[in-house]
Design a protein around this nucleic acid. Sequence first.
DNA 1: AGTCTTTTTCACGATTCTGAACGAAATTTA
DNA 2: TAAATTTCGTTCAGAATCGTGAAAAAGACT
Lengths: 226, 226
Amino acid sequence: MNILVIEDEKNVASFIKKGLEENGMIVTLAYDGETGLSLLQEQEYNVIVLDVILPQVNGWEVCNRIRKQLRLKTPVLMLTALSSTDNLVKGFEQGADDYLAKPFKFQELLVRVKALDRRNRNQVATQSVLRFDDIEMNMEQKMVTRAGKEIKLTSREYNLLEFFMKNPNKVISRMEILENVWGVNFDLGTNVVDVYVNYLRNKLEKNFEKKVIQTVVGMGYILRAN
Amino acid sequence: MNILVIEDEKNVASFIKKGLEENGMIVTLAYDGETGLSLLQEQEYNVIVLDVILPQVNGWEVCNRIRKQLRLKTPVLMLTALSSTDNLVKGFEQGADDYLAKPFKFQELLVRVKALDRRNRNQVATQSVLRFDDIEMNMEQKMVTRAGKEIKLTSREYNLLEFFMKNPNKVISRMEILENVWGVNFDLGTNVVDVYVNYLRNKLEKNFEKKVIQTVVGMGYILRAN
DNA sequence: AGTCTTTTTCACGATTCTGAACGAAATTTA
DNA sequence: TAAATTTCGTTCAGAATCGTGAAAAAGACT
């Protein structure tokens, strides 16, 4: 289970990290909201622990942006020093899923994190996002980004990339591609695959440093980071 | 707001009752699970405060029966002396919505009760109202507004929009739409879907800045803000 | 009958797909 | 090493498909 903790007080942060790690969780720390948000773009987390009081952008704002901007449904547990009703209600309005008033016992935190994860698992079976290196493919929105930049693909190009991303670091033959992307299972003497790989490369690798689709002469292609 | 408190320790019970009443709530006490369950059959409550340790039937069992037997979705706040993880996870499994470890400050209880009520109200509300960006769909009144302005739709148009709003930010294929809105599950070579999307666009996007229904060539359509 | 809603059809333009052609690169053969 | 062969990358133009809007036809309801 991956947890992102956004908390500026370093001793509190490392206290939480240590405790959660002792319970078998993988914990990433962010000491401010912006860092947290960019981490969320890079990787998927199961639960976010978010302090309300943060430098610059406060926790509510961060929470709001997680929902509205990043469109993530990852459950958020808010940590708050102020346990007044109004403040908390505000938290829920911004899309927090639970809150915990400081100071708290670690057991409390642990239980809540587990409960949030549990609740979430039941609701959303899978977040349909494929990732490879800095390429991200949202299978619901059929949207692809590389290093955060949107890359518009036609449907055939998209399907081809999806096949690559479902078989990363693995040489794929032209036949396999034809079968799985074009639905053809006989060799029509065509080079469509070559052409489309070329299209993909143009869209996916131009303006970027690293090449990701490499050809393996006589065998096919492979999606590999450098 | 009606609260049912199921708690056998009379001094704790009356302490809670008094406090909640001071905050304008109507509180009913039950000193054991059976009494609580029968009260729930007679009247509707907004929130249930339930002690885990009760004579005869324990709190988890009561919670379980509230969900499985009475089929009530009334939010349950569990009071527990044991804040160990396992016990609490068990509580959530039985359908509790939140918990509070004894001893607690009254403020904590109050906040949680309010939060539960609030969450519940929102859920019930959103059961009949769908929102996306500035579009609001009242499913009881079958009425749609955008930016507060009413938009009159025919029933087919309404059903189509409803399907979109239930699958926001997700590419929907023509087939899916045909199946779910027209109830056809074979490909009659028609472009009704295209036509109706077009109707929706006319009614929903003319006179407004932002387009919300976008076509994804070769794949279908997507309801997406901007 | 008359209005409103729904379905179907059509045509144009835009996008996407595909095969062919050819040079470049890699591999094999001589 | 050089030549021959195979494989690959790229470009391009025609073909096929798809999206859109309008308009006509069919159906439902009053």
